[in-house]
């Protein structure tokens, strides 16, 4: 069955960069691209146990007369066949329902607020809800199109991080790109972390795909992140901890996304692993 990435197109220079990133992602992994050009500023995504309303900022509706032509041009230049999603169901006349049976979804850092908020350190509330509810990973792109030449998985040993690692293996297998693992151990030693790999029966994949393991037992995460290659796709697990733990200790993903300008693939707690 074909693997699909869902992309919401914005007919602006920023939207062009995001679409280029999606096209590159699809070409690298052999994934087909499904593009939605919104006609309304809002739509609904019904997940298994949540419904998320996405309120797009007005820039998503800009210049509708050229939107299809611009998107088609970029997609065809990227060697792909343009496929546009037309919503079939509507909760209300101005509120289309967008399917959620994709394998990946591409989001800018914010889709509900003004484009001025696309800087680092900000992920919009809707993007968070999508990450929390989706069974697919969410590709959060860098501000300008940049090709990635390796994959870096952030692996701290949690269940969500194990899913990220599995996704990293899958991407490495599909793209033939080198895979690195980054661990901010916070007191744990390497054996403890590797035990999680063994527990998940991932040793053989680990040996096969991992080209390097940046393991930091100490130091600030913010400082250690400098080790992540600038042209690497960061694969990160997010929102895997409970509310209390997140409240007390904060979220690693939030720190990483506020510092790292790379393209990021964020794996939420409901992500179902595909091999």
């Amino acid at each position: 069955m074909e693997t699909q990435l869902f992309h919401i197109f914005r007919n602006t220079p920023l939207g062009r960069e995001t679409l280029l990133q999606s096209i590159y992602f699809c070409n690298t992994l052999g994934v087909s691209l499904q593009v939605y050009i919104p006609k309304f500023t809002k739509f609904l995504m019904y997940f298994e146990n949540d419904v998320v309303q996405i309120d797009l900022d007005e820039s998503y509706l800009s210049f509708p007369e050229t939107a299809i032509a611009h998107a088609t041009e970029l997609i065809e230049a990227g060697g792909k066949k343009p496929k546009f999603l037309e919503p079939k169901a509507f909760t209300a006349s101005t509120l289309p329902d967008i399917p959620t049976n994709f394998d990946f979804m591409c989001c800018p850092r914010s889709i509900s607020d003004l484009s001025s908020k696309i800087g680092l350190g900000y992920i919009g509330p809707r993007v968070r809800r999508i990450v929390k509810s989706a069974v697919f990973p969410v590709l959060i792109t860098s501000g300008a199109f940049k090709q990635w030449k390796s994959i870096t998985v952030f692996f701290g040993g949690s269940a969500n991080a194990t899913n990220s690692l599995k996704l990293g293996f899958r991407i490495a297998r599909l793209s033939n790109l080198p895979l690195y693992v980054f661990t901010q151990a916070d007191g744990k030693n390497k054996d403890d972390i590797y035990a999680v790999v063994k527990e998940g029966c991932l040793e053989s994949d680990f040996e096969k795909y991992v080209g390097g393991w940046s393991f930091f037992q100490g130091g600030q995460l913010e400082e250690n992140l400098y080790d992540v290659p600038h042209d690497s796709l960061a694969v990160i697990g997010a929102f895997g901890h409970g509310l209390i733990k997140d409240f007390l200790f904060g979220s690693k993903m939030e720190i990483i996304q506020s510092i790292l300008p790379n393209n990021m693939l964020i794996v939420g707690p409901n992500y179902s692993v595909r091999r």
Partner: peptide, 15 residues
Amino acid sequence: VKEGAGHGVPEVIYS
């Protein structure tokens, strides 16, 4: 609140 218009009951039945 950015909610689509409608009478309410059909939306509930639809959902």
